[in-house]
Each structure stands twice: as structure tokens, then as C-alpha cells.
């Protein structure tokens, strides 16, 4: 069985993102870029499934500019067998990304597509659900546990009320949550080895995917700031302050 894993290149989670003064976007100049943290978890899970003999091949996929090759190389260094860059300089919205994955599913016939539960740049949290709908196959979002048994998977999902378990038939789409696993660290020799692994560049136009229905992003603004607070010396003053404000 093949596993397809989505790898989005995003601003590193440690960066304090700033909106450009003219409201045209956020400042990404010289900013550290990384693999979307959820995608690292998705890849780790795919690798563990391969290591457990439940999958034969792990393919990492990124849709984006040439710069995303860097994140694909990271994926290869972690242990993916090969990589596909769907090359486009247009920032695609989730419906188009899902359509690209749909087209790749047609080519690669994976048993499982593992995506992150959300990309931490746009915080959309849509792609996995959309791919599942377009493909007509099961979706299991926000997975914190995944057990593969033959042609079915039992997935524990992190939902607001607690943990939900569902059973799905393969092939299927799973989006992963933080507690599914802890991704491995990449070792130097693996980085060297990754340089020799195949990375195919596929021009977006070759997939025959139409971009439609994009939301028009008009303006970026910094978030409203909270008013500056006060510091208190001790617990008694804190309690008094809360009482004064009618909070307790």
C-alpha cells in the first residue's frame, strides 16, 4: 500500500508574524520557513506504518513554488521514499489543493492520504475534508490514534467533547492532530541520503485542475491589541482587584 502525505511549506510556528504596513500581506521576508507541524506528524505516522509492514511506500507531496523543495527534502530525510512537487507560484486555496490531491490520487492510487488537520498559516482546516468529499472516500479528521487492520482503519478523533472512535474502509483520508505521535529528528546522514532520493517536479498545469471559486482576500490587518494591564504585588491585592471589578 502507498501512503500519500501532504507537506505544506509555512512560516515557522515560532515566528511572530507581522502584517505589512500597507495591508497587502504578512512579512515573510527572511522569515524562517518550515514544514507545517501537523504535516510532520502525518509523515511520522506514515513512516511508522511502513516500518510496521503495513505500507510499502511513503510519498510526500507539496503544492507550491520551487522553494517548497526544501520542505520535501526534509520529508525525504525523515524517511519518505520519494517526493512530488506540484509546481505553481500561485497560492492555492483549499478547494484547489484538494483537487490537486484528487488528481494525484488518480495517478498514484494510495491506500491512505495523510494530511495535517490544519495549515498554521491560513488556519483553514479544509483540505482533508474536501479531498474526501471529491474522492467519495471516508474522512477521519483530527486523528490522535490510528490503527490499521487489513482494509479498515480504526481512528480515534480529538473532538471538543472528548475522544470519538470511528472505523473506516480504505482507501481513505485522515487528518492528524498533535497527539498522534512525536515526529523523529532528522540526522545528518539522513540529510545526505535524502539528496539522492527522487523528487519529481510536476507543473501544476499538467494536472488539468481548474482554479475556481477563490475567496478574494482584500486586506490584511494586525489584530486588535488588548489594553495594557496592571501588575499586582501579592495575592491579597489580586483578590481585591478582582472584587473591585466585580469578577468574583
Amino acid at each position: 500500500m502507498k501512503i500519500l502525505v501532504g507537506i505544506k511549506r509555512v512560516v515557522d510556528y515560532n515566528v511572530r508574524v507581522r502584517v505589512l504596513p500597507d495591508g497587502s500581506g504578512v512579512d515573510t521576508d527572511g522569515v524562517k520557513m518550515s514544514v507545517n507541524p501537523f504535516d510532520e506528524i502525518a509523515l511520522e505516522e506514515a513512516l511508522r506504518l511502513r516500518e510496521a509492514g503495513k505500507a510499502d511506500e511513503v510519498i510526500v507531496v507539496s503544492i507550491g513554488s520551487d522553494a517548497a523543495q526544501q520542505q520535501l527534502r526534509t520529508g525525504l530525510a525523515m524517511g519518505a521514499d520519494r517526493a512530488i512537487l506540484v509546481q505553481t507560484d500561485t497560492a492555492l486555496q483549499p478547494l484547489s489543493v484538494a483537487r490537486v490531491f484528487r488528481a494525484l490520487v488518480e495517478r498514484e492510487a494510495p491506500g491512505l492520504v495523510l494530511l495535517g488537520k490544519q495549515a498554521i498559516d491560513d488556519d483553514n482546516s479544509q483540505t482533508a475534508q474536501m479531498l474526501s468529499a471529491l474522492w467519495g472516500r471516508p474522512q477521519a479528521t483530527f486523528a490522535s490514534k490510528l490503527v490499521l487492520e487489513g482494509d479498515t482503519a480504526t481512528v480515534t478523533r480529538e473532538v471538543d467533547a472528548g475522544l470519538e472512535t470511528i472505523e473506516i474502509d480504505l482507501p481513505a483520508v485522515v487528518s492528524v492532530d498533535l497527539r498522534l505521535n512525536e515526529p523523529r529528528f532528522v540526522k545528518l546522514p539522513d540529510i545526505m541520503k535524502a539528496k539522492r532520493k527522487p523528487l519529481d517536479v510536476l507543473p501544476f498545469a499538467e494536472l488539468g485542475v481548474d482554479i475556481e471559486g477563490d475567496l478574494d482576500i482584500r486586506r490584511f490587518a494586525p489584530p486588535p491589541q488588548r489594553e495594557k494591564g496592571i501588575m499586582v504585588e501579592d495575592t491579597a491585592t489580586l483578590v481585591q482587584e478582582l472584587k473591585n471589578r466585580g469578577l468574583i
Binding site: D216, R218, F220, A221
Partner: peptide, 13 residues
């Protein structure tokens, strides 16, 4: 977006 570090105005087609 960006964990609330930016707010965007969007218009649907």
C-alpha cells in the same frame, strides 16, 4: 489567520 496574528477581509465570489 496565523493563530490570530493577522485578520483578513475576504469576499466570496
Amino acid at each position: 489567520i496565523y493563530a490570530g496574528n493577522a485578520i483578513i477581509d475576504v469576499e466570496t465570489p
